[in-house]
Amino acid sequence: MITAVRKPMEEIIACVSPYDRILLVGCNECVSVCSAGGRKEVALLSSALQMHFLKQGKTIEIREMTLERQCDPEYVEELVNYMDGADAVLSMACGCGVQTIAARFREKPVFPAVNTTFMGASERQGVWSERCQGCGDCVLGITGGICPIARCSKRLLNGPCGGSTKGKCEIDANVDCAWQLIWDRLKALGLEKRIEDVIEAKDWRTSRDGGPRKIVREDLAS
């Protein structure tokens, strides 16, 4: 999923301060799952903002909405009836959601209330870790199911580097060395030899380096 964390209140407050009527929009997808921008977080942020402004003697109107999927124009359309009553939109979705709203409602300022962080997986309750960088050319098949691009601090395709210590990365003892994990996994699979295969320099065109990416499915596109 796409993970996110709420921005500091100070930053959010600075964004919405000039406005009296805020449409606060959450999303039921990824940011709900990682407890950053779902219905609950929308309510909490709304309450915190309300209290902040009340404390200053200012009353603002906050309408809370949580869409099924904010990155989908179909659902963003649901906001159409509420836009007239709002001076600005505060979105708790990932950057994709924020942009979908911005694209649909061109005259309305839209502010992100979260920092979109990474594509990750849940390690355990309340802990998410980066797992994928969306490079567009998956190497997991040759790296034992562990992504060195997302999980090696130097995104080495031929690791580990000399900083791998007791299974941990040199940058932080709490970060696993991706190449130690890859090595352990290749061993478990009986594929130790593979560690000596030189993985060639990556073609980053499939990644962000090739420019913004787009997927067009002719069979589905209307």
Binding site: K154, R155, L157, N158, G159, C161, V198, E200
Partner: peptide
């Protein structure tokens, strides 16, 4: 491949790693 920027005086710098040390040799 080089030390991670975290250790230096520009920890805010982008970490390029277009290729790695083995690929640089190649």
């Amino acid at each position: 491949s080089g030390d991670h920027p975290k250790f230096g005086d520009h920890p805010m710098a982008a970490n390029v790693h277009d290729i790695d040390s083995v690929q640089l040799i190649q």
